[in-house]
Structures are given as C-alpha cells and as structure tokens.
C-alpha cells in the first residue's frame, strides 16, 4: 500500500489536513439506503456475503438521514414519493452525495407513465448514475468506488455549503469566519 512504502524511508510524510480529512471521508462513506423498489433488493444483495460492500467501508447502512453522507436512491420514484425523498435528503448533513441507482431513478426507465418522475435529477443533485435495470451489485460497487474518487478529490472550499457556515450563526457561538 502507498502509506507503508512512504513511511519505510524516513518515518514521516507530508500532506494537508484537508487531504487527510478527504481521505478519511472517502474511505468510510455511510450510505442512506433509500430503498424504494426492485433495485433495493440488489442493494441488499450488495451487502450480502458474496458481494460484501464492507470491503469498501460502506456497510454501515443507516436508516436515519442524520448519520449519512451518501444517499443511494434505489427504485422507482413516484410523484408522491418524491416529496419524501426530498425531505429525507434535506435532513442529511452537508457534505452529501447522491447515487441514482438504476434506470428508473436516472430517467424514469421503463415507466413512461403518469405517476413516475422521469429522472430524480429534476429535484435532487445527482452525482453518479448507475446504469442497469437493476444494476448488478458489482455495478453498484463500481458506482460507490467512483463516488469515493469524487469525495477524495473534494476539498473544503468545494463544498456548496461549507460545514462551518451551517452552524447556527444567530447564537454567535462558534462562528468561524470562512477566510
């Protein structure tokens, strides 16, 4: 691994705190399994002993949005459900990412009908679209690895809503200024 080979020479290496934090964030993505229909079963399968999502540090599926930083939207989103998905997404703390798993969430898929949202990007910022109906678990793992890459490259200044500004400023405590 990279780390040991660097340490073996002098016993230290240089980096920035930002990069270190990104590395830590990247390797323990906690997903919020927004399992709605068939794709949810494949998402479940990616956690089973055969595919084992814990190899990528993401087996901690939390059903409460407050503890997650990645939302996997797995399944057909109907208009009625869209409000629920949005509400849950809004409750997740920044920074957060979204995987649109499957054809349905990406484009409406095979459901060109009156009650299915034709692509969740109409109301959510999607980072990765996983293709397939359903995507095989390998494909979901691939999407996860890509999102890890993306997270690893993200620096604090890239956050749309930097975490320190979301601390309640009215109370006046802990109001770190951005500069």
């Amino acid at each position: 691994m990279g780390l040991e080979s660097k340490l073996i020479n002098d016993g230290f290496f240089t980096t920035t705190v930002d990069a270190m934090a990104a590395w830590a964030r990247e390797s323990s993505v906690w997903p919020m399994p927004m399992g709605i229909s068939c794709c949810a079963i494949e998402m479940m399968a990616s956690g089973d002993p055969k595919y084992d999502i814990s190899r990528f540090g993401s087996e901690v599926m939390r059903f409460t949005p407050r503890q997650c930083d990645l939302m996997i939207v797995a399944g057909t989103v109907t208009y009625k459900m869209a409000h629920v998905v949005k509400k849950i997404f809004d409750q997740m703390p920044e920074p957060k990412w979204v995987i649109a798993m499957g054809a349905c969430t990406s484009t409406g898929g095979m459901y060109r009908s009156y009650n299915v949202v034709q692509g969740i990007d109409q109301f959510l910022p999607v980072d990765i679209y996983a293709a397939g109906c359903p995507p095989r678990p390998e494909n979901l793992l691939n999407a996860l690895m890509q999102i890890q890459d993306k997270i690893g490259k993200t620096r604090v200044k890239d956050f749309p809503d930097p975490p320190h500004t979301s601390i309640d400023e009215k109370q006046g405590e802990l109001s770190l200024s951005k500069n």
Partner: peptide, 16 residues
C-alpha cells in the same frame, strides 16, 4: 381519456 404520460403539473414535484 386520461393520457398515459399524465397531465403536466397535475401532481406537484418538490423544488430543487
């Protein structure tokens, strides 16, 4: 008489 793709705006979507 109801169209397959529905009537746009019949059910609202959340804001982005």
């Amino acid at each position: 008489e109801y169209p397959l793709m529905g009537i746009p705006g019949a059910i609202p979507l959340p804001k982005k």
